[in-house]
Design a protein around this nucleic acid. Sequence first.
RNA 1: GUCCCCUUCGUCUAUCGGUUAGGACGCCAGAUUUUCAUUCUGGAAAGAGGAGUUCGAUUCUCCUAGGGGAUACCA
Length: 443
Amino acid sequence: MTSIFRFAPSPTGYLHVGNARLALINWLSAKNDGGKMILRLDDTDLERSTDRYADAIQEDLHWLGLAWSEIRKQSDRSAAYTKAFETLKDAGRLYPCYETGEELDYKRKRRLARKLPPIYDRAALDLTPADVAAFEAEGRKPHWRFKLEQEVIRWDDLVRGPVVVDGASMSDPVLIRSDGRPLYHMPSVVDDIDFRITHVIRGEDHVSNTALHIQIFEALGAAIPTFGHIPLLTGPDGGPLSKREGSQSLREMREAGIEAMALVSLLARLGTSDNVAVCHDLQAVIDGFDISQFSRAAAKFDPAELVNLNAKLLHETSWDKVQERISLEGADENFWNAIRGNLSTLNDVEIWWRVVKGPMTPVIEDATFLRAAADELPAGEITPESWKIWTTAVKEKTGAKGRALFMPLRLALTGQPHGPEMNNLLPLIGRENILARLNGTAD
RNA sequence: GUCCCCUUCGUCUAUCGGUUAGGACGCCAGAUUUUCAUUCUGGAAAGAGGAGUUCGAUUCUCCUAGGGGAUACCA
């Protein structure tokens, strides 16, 4: 049997690191297993789901390099949900409830005030036909709850090991809203059954859902998939990640110049006992991946670590891999090799392009020294060897050495106190610009 | 409030009762005879707190503290 994983985001916003991590983990697990991954859009929440987000999610996954074997939308599947609803109702596992939101809220608060767990009291189970008739006459429509077996639910979790949840400690979940629309739980289970999902890998926030989903699987007479719950990521300070005003969306990262492979390299290993290392292609990420290496504790996601990894990745990236993404007229492999070691993101390329081609403002501290240096510039073509020859000549002529020799030249030639190695930069800047800059002329 | 999970260098983590508590990233220092980057070498750096079990606890148990999650007619 081939394993089938799924990534099931709600199209209610852009993908953020947390989502992307789960997508990646599912994809990697599928790859490692010789299985496939289905993309399922959980768009049962009509108010918040939009096509724009659905498209954006696919775009972001493509950017990461993740592919899915098929895509399904829950909004297309209402017939299947209706059928499951009937099945569960016939089995006596669904019961109608007529409480309003306010009433439920009140009950909840009362239980809380008495230091009791705020679970539903199952009052609707005691409704007489006359009560129901009265509610209906009032115009109230029922919402439907799933009657949980009050027993201990167990499963062997891929990352948490044996998990035990007491069914009696949970509220009977509402499966169908009073407007007739299904809530998250039933569609999720029905789709997992119909799409023959074998592995459900999701965030730790779903563990109690899993307990209840297992009962729904059973009530529907279906096989129960293997579950794995990955601890959620926290921010660098250990606080919740999602609450930091969307600054972690993939789109923003992409705009900030983050490489997909840098993100993937980090997300695939963060929280595991494997060392985070730069991976240049997805195969390298697949090869070292092992879901059982994930810790049960929440890991911190630090954007600074991502930027660091991004820089390291770029330093090792060859020209042919980035060529088509650099739109600067005249930029070539020599230029790339000269500057890549100083890049943090690809956006920085422009900075060094300007340093080489101008316009830039030379920093002149000692015009006399620079004029003397200009006189020593070797004749003929400027090559990577020219720098050494030139600075040696300048040293003999002026007596300057070390920092006093090199720094004024760097400042005049690049306008900056740091940057790529000068021997590589010099040929790129070219004789004409070199002389102009030494002369203090902005180009 | 209630329930569940978690807590080892700054960070991600290894250790399945006896270790100089290991690695990676980061950091610091030195070298590669300017800076940045790279590479190499070296270094600093950790068991939340308190009880208990034991000849011996980072490891097992309990308590406390801190963190995360759940507790919706969201997903």
